[in-house]
Amino acid sequence: MIRGIYTAAMGMLAEESKVNNISNNLANVDTAGFKKDGLAFSTYLKKEIFRNESEDHFNKRTNVGKMESGVVLDESKPWFEQGAIEMTGSEYDFAITGEGFFTVETADGRTYYTRNGQWHRDNENFLVDSVGNYVLNDAGERITIEEGFRVDQDGSIYENGVLTGRIDLVTFDNPDGLRKVGNNYFAATDYSGPSQQNFDATVVQGGFERANVNAVKEMVNLINAQRHFEIAQRVITTEDQLLDAAVNRVGKV
């Protein structure tokens, strides 16, 4: 009976983390290249239950099934499905269709990966992203551009018709292992593996990728989470009433 209270409380905590996650997804509905997060839950303290049967002075244990005492948040991970591409006509807007990431370098030399292609030119003619960090080419160098540059589908950069380099486009063995660090960036980890360049990426110049957050789905999840939360709360109050009866009424003549 007491255990039920804790199980239901864990359920409430799980729904709360769901709502936190949905809030963040909805807050970023207008963030270019944002990838929504999904949560995975797992059962907690799974136990096998046995029945003890005494037969001829031998204890026999018969398996009657398993019992789970609660739920925990096991994993959060970004969902990499494609976001819609909004065409703007601006020569500084880029999007990747299909898998892959752009590579950017911060002023202090750290490398991050992003799907955000809202870029600009800084005062030294470097190609920078909206935060001001440098976009890299496939040789790992910062990209300098002049007015009237053009980028091909495979990321090749042309200035006045002359090939001057290629935008770095990378993929990972296990993109799920990438770590979100804010500013639309992903960082490589031991679990994602190192970045790899050899794959067919398609780049669009003149448009950027919108967030892949689906407002309808998020709203449905939000309603779901709230109702589950209320149900778990009802379970706790019911358990409480049972305890009340046990404490105050059992043994009353």
Binding site: A27, A40, Y44, L45, D74
Partner: peptide, 24 residues
């Protein structure tokens, strides 16, 4: 490792929202 002594296969994180970085 999570409290159930199993090795977890993924991270658990919470995003804190959105910020405006630039007006162009």
């Amino acid at each position: 490792p999570d409290s159930d002594t199993n090795i977890s296969n993924g991270p658990v994180y919470t995003g804190l929202g959105v910020k405006e970085v630039r007006t162009t």
